[in-house]
Design a protein around this nucleic acid. Sequence first.
RNA 1: GGGCCCGUAGCUCAGUCGGUAGAGCGCCGGCUUUGCAAGCCGGAGGUCCCGGGUUCGAAUCCCGGCGGGUCCA
Length: 907
Amino acid sequence: MDMSLQGPVEIQFLKERGYVRKRCPICGEYFWTLDPDRETCGEAPCEPYSFLGKAISEKSIEQVREDFLSFMEKRGHTRINRYPVIARWRDDLFLTSASIVDFQPFITSGLVPPPANPLTISQPCIRLKDVDKVGPTMGRHLTIFEMMAHHAFNSKERWVYWKERTVELFHEYATEVLGIPEEEIIYKEGIWEGGGNAGPDLEPIVRGLEIATLVFMEYKMVNGKYVPMDTKVVDTGYGLERITWLLNGSPTGFHAVYGKLVDDFMSLFGVGRVDDKFLMEYTKVSSLLRELEKGKSVNSLRREISKRTGIPLELIEDKIVPLELTFAVLDHTKALAFMLADGLVPSNVNEGYLGRLLIRRTLRILKQLGVEISLSELVSKQVDYWSSKGFPELKESIDRITDMLDIEQKRFEELLRRGRQLVRDILRSKKRVSEEDLVVLYESHGLTPEFVAQVAKEEGYEVKVPDNFFELIAAKHESKPPKPPELPDYVDELMKYSPTKPLYYQNPYLLNASAQVVGVIRGNGVILDSTVFYPEGGGQPSDVGYISWDGGSAYVERVEKYKGVIVHWVKGEAPPVGTKVSCQVDRIRRLNRMRHHSATHVILEAAKRVLGSHVWQWGAQKGDEVSRLDITHYKPITPDELRRIEEIANEAVMRNIRVNTFWLTRTEAEKRYGFEIYQGGVVPDPTLRIVEIEGYNVQACGGTHVIRTGDIGYIKIWRAKRIQDGVIRLEFSAGMPAVRKMIGMHEELKKVSSSLGVPEERLSDSIAELKEELKKLKSKLNELKGFELRSLISSALEKAEVVSGIKLAKVLVSDDYQLDEVVKKADKLLEESTAVVIIRDSGNRYNVALLTSEDIKGRVKAGSLIREITKSLGGGGGGNDKLGRGAIPREKLEEFLTKLRDSLIKR
RNA sequence: GGGCCCGUAGCUCAGUCGGUAGAGCGCCGGCUUUGCAAGCCGGAGGUCCCGGGUUCGAAUCCCGGCGGGUCCA
C-alpha cells in the first residue's frame, strides 16, 4: 500500500454536525461518530447487529431501489440502465463485480466521456470470492447483489462534486429517505483498491451493519506505484440487499431480499421452519465471529456458536444447516438466472467455467439436502420473481436458461455416475485411495474429495482427506505469471514516425494510390505517408501487392500496424526515402478477404437469430478460400439449424443491404448499440470503428468491408463442429471460392453417380448397399481362407517329421496371409507334442514363427529358440515359450530349418 | 490462455515385459423350462481415433494431429 493513501478523511460537513474521530480498540480502525462516549467502530464483529427485530420501515426491495434512484435523480443525477453481469467490455474481468466496473478503464481515466455526469445506477454484481460464506453469514455475504451508486467524474474541464457533497448526499439519503436517526450513523475510514485504481473511503455503519462504501478514487497504478489521477471519481456503492435487511429488521438478510421465495424453497426442500427469535439470536451471535471473515472451517465455528449461545450443537446442525444450504441455493439460483440471461454459456473455460462452477456447487448442495428437483425449476422461480422486481428482461431467455440447466444437470449426473465407478475401481485394485489418487480424481475427473470419501464409505472404506487438500492443488498450479505480449523490437523505431494515413478506410475498393516514402527500417520495412494496404488485424490477414516507383518496384509481402504507424515489408530493394511511389494491392486476394470478413458478420447475426442471443463470437480467422467463425453455443448445432443459418445469411446477401462504417466514442457506441458490438474482442481504444449492416447487425471492427452485402456473393457453410465445450466452429467460404468449390463438388458427385450408375439423389442409399455387400464378401473370403489354411495345416501335420519325440510340421504360405491368422488357425489344430514352423514369404525376406503345443512349450521355449536362430542368421525375433516369431533373410531359409531341427534334437 | 487424464466390439471397460486382441452387458442360433425370470452351449461383431517414427514385430514405446473429459487463471 502506498503511504500517500493513508491519513484521516476529514469531512467539514460531518465536523460541523458534531462528528468526532475515534479509533476502535478492537479492530484498530478510525471512525467518525456523534456520540463522544462511543468506544468501538460499531461494525460487526466489533459489536453485534442491533437492527434485528427492529423494523424501521417494511419496504420491499424494489421500493428501496426506486427510492434511492429517484432521490439521486432529484439531486441532479441521471438514471442509467444496468449493465450486463458479464463484463463484455472488459478484457481483464469476466463478471461485473461493482458498479464502477461499468466505467473502467476509459471513463475513469478521462479518455471517454461518461454516459451522464453525475449519474445514478443500480448494478447487479456477481462476486464468487466469498461463495463459501453465503448462507452461514445469514445474508451479509451474497454472490449476487445490487450495488446502488451515484458516480461523479471530475476533470479540470468539468468539476461536478467531490468528498463533501458525496457525504452530504449519503447523509441526507440515510436520514430522510431511509429514516435512520443521524446519531446512529457511524462513518468508518478505509482505503479502497480495485481495477488499477485506489483512494480513501468512508464506510457508513448503522446498527452493526456496513450499508455503503463512499470511495474517493484519486490514484491510479502506474508501474506498480500509485500516482494521482487527472480525474477524480466519486465511486459509491450502496448495498441494496443490506439496506433492505436493515429496514426490515428480519431474522436474516434472505428473508428481506427473497420474500416469499424463502418459504417456497424451504417447503420444496422439506426444510423445517425455525423460530424467528431463535434465528435472530443465532444471526446475532454469528455476526460476532471474526473467524468467519478469515475463512476458518464452518464446522468449528458452529461449535463456537453453540458454546456462546447455549444452543446444543445437534440442534444447530439439525435446524440451521439445512437453512443455510437453502439460503445458498436461493442466492446461487438468482446468480445463475442473471448470468445465463445475460448470455453466459456454461463451459470449461473463461466465464463459462465460473457459470459451471456455480451450477455444480448448487447441484451438490441439493444432493446434500437430499432434494430431487431440477435446477431449471428453481432458477425459473427466480426468473419469475426478479422479472417482477425490476428485471423483466430475464423472462426473454427463460427457454434457453431451462434448456442449458437441464443439459448441465444431466452432464453432472453422468459425471458422478462415472466417478462412482472410478472410485470403486481404485478401491478394488488398491484397497485404498491415496492422496495422489484424490488429486487425479479432482483434476482430471472433477470429483471432490468429499464425494470420493462418501463413495468409499459406502463401499466400506475410510478415506482421509488431507486438511490442506486445496493447498496441494494450488501448489500444482503455482505456475509462471502470464507473459505480456511480446512487441517486436523494431516498434521503437516505428514510433519515431507519425501515424500513416489509412486510405483503405476511406474507400475499401480503392486498390491503388500514390504515396510518399517517409522512412525505411531494417532495410526492407517501408513507411509511407498514406497507404491503401490493409495491415494485419481483426483476424484479417494483411494485403499483399506491389510498390513501384521511377526506377524500380518491390513486392509487398506483409503489412503491420503499431500505434497507427504502418510498415510494409518488401521483398528486394526498398525505395529510397522521399521517393514518390505508386501502390497496387493484389486485387483478388483483397476482395476475397473483404468478402469473407463481411460474411463473418452476416453469418454471426444469422446464427444469433437461429440459435439465440447467447451466441457470441469466440474467435475468427479470415482466409482466401475458407474462413472460420467460432461461436459460443451450449449444444451441437443440428443440420436443420445449420441450414437455416445458411439460408438467413444468403438472404441477407441477396437483400443487398448497405454496409456503413464510421467512428464513435465508446460511450456513444455502447449507448446506441449495446455491448454486442464487442464481438471481435475488446478494442482497447477510446474511439471505436463501427461496421453497421443497416438494420441487420452492428459491430466494432477495424477490417475492410464490402459496401453492400450483395458484393459478398454466395455464402456456403461447409460444416459446424464443436472445437471445445461451449464453442462451435463454422467453416465457410464466400464469393468465388464458395462458387468454385460447390461446382467442383457437384462435378465430383456427378462422376460418382455415373460410375455407380445411380442417380445423384439415390447415391447415399446405394453406397450403403455396396458397403453391406463388401462386408459380406469380406467375411466369405475369410471363411474360404480359413478352409484353405485348415487343409494346408492339416496336410503339413500329416507329413510332419518326428524329431526327438516332437512332431515338427512345416507350413509355407504366401503374403496373402498374415502370420497372425496362420498362427491362430494352427493353434486350433495342434495335437500333443507338436511344433509347427510357419514360413511366410514377404519378398526380400521370410517371416517365420514357431508354435508349440502346450505340453512341450516348457521344453522347447519357442521364443528364445527363435531369437537365437534368427539372430545368428542376421535377422531378429523373440516371443514367449509357446510362440516365437521373427524374420530371416531370404537366402537363409534352408539354414534356418536345419538349425531349428538341430536345436530341437538338443532340447 | 496454461496444466493433467482418456480414446480398444453396439455399450461399459480389461489388456502385465512390445510377441495369437479379451471380459461383462447387448445381439443372433440352439438346448433346458408348462410359462416367466433365468440358466447352459454355440455364434456373429474390431480401421485398437488418425498420421509418421523406432523395431523382425506396435493397441502397447516416441513425435505430430484429431476427438472427448477435467482443473486452474
